[in-house]
Amino acid sequence: MSEMPTYKKKDFVSDQEVRWCPGCGDYAILSAVQLAMTKIGRKREDIAFVSGIGCSSRFPYYMNTYGMHTIHGRAPAFATGLKTHNPNLSVWVITGDGDGMSIGGNHLIHAIRRNVNMNVILFNNEIYGLTKGQYSPTSQMGLVTKSTPFGALDRPFTPGSLALGAGSTFFARTIDTDPKHMQEVFLAAEQHQGTSFIEVFQNCVIFNDKVHDAYTNRLTRDDHTVRVEHGKPMIFGKEKNKGLVLEGFTPKVVTIGENGVTEEDIIVHNEKDINNANMLCRLEGEGVPAPLGIIRQVEAPVYDAQVEAQINEVTEKKGAGDMAKLLHAGDTWEVK
């Protein structure tokens, strides 16, 4: 075994010209991933990126690792096969809201359900980019696009809730304008054993510009997002004086220091608590912030590791397979 090399970002940059639109949020995510790769402690040859179809799915071509650009929506299935065959690999699925939430929804929920040890990064820009601007399964109702000139009528998916419904053991959300936070989340995802599902709020400058503006704009972002950390209270706001409390089962925004509210009253984030995670994914309403950070992380059996363990267990019990023995097992007869 060769020693673990020290990598720089450029070691993960492929020789292919990046062809996203100028100003696309994908550039920042690519850069954050390349930086994160220098820190995950894995050799370049043991890393594979697998994508489906869409703007974001060109990603593997730009990574100087192993990579597969597959077919629309199916990346989690390819990745499941690759990882199950070789559990030693660090496998990353790159998908978008059309690829992962629409055509590939089935594969995504089943990968999460099985808890295959891989990382799935969902670039959520709430629009179809590569097909030039139709609404997606995460677009808000009423969105006017080429295919919805009078406004979208579908109710959108909340990716986090979908993942939690499928039994997600790791769900985090981050944002393309915060490279440091993205890297932290990607590192945590790699360390997690099981399917790590990461939603990145990503901006499409051409077809849905500023869709996440409230969360990225310097003027509004602190009041519209809450950074959650396990064991810490959900405090946010420019003045760091807003927080979330529960009224019955319903979260509510309060101001610390008003109406007798103190820091002790604020909900403390517990990434192990499913109700807490469900609540965070469903936060909505005027003045209610969008949570960023690791929303859920729990331990659960990992599919590919279990496949390997079962093979070892059966082999230990029966002995390594012998083909000639197998063919002669059961009823045979001799013709002389």
């Binding site: 199916r74 096969g81 594969h107």
Partner: peptide
């Protein structure tokens, strides 16, 4: 679909 896609993934893996 996942049946064949997982197999192709495994094939890429050797």
């Amino acid at each position: 679909i996942a049946g064949i896609c997982s197999a192709i993934g495994a094939s890429y893996g050797g």
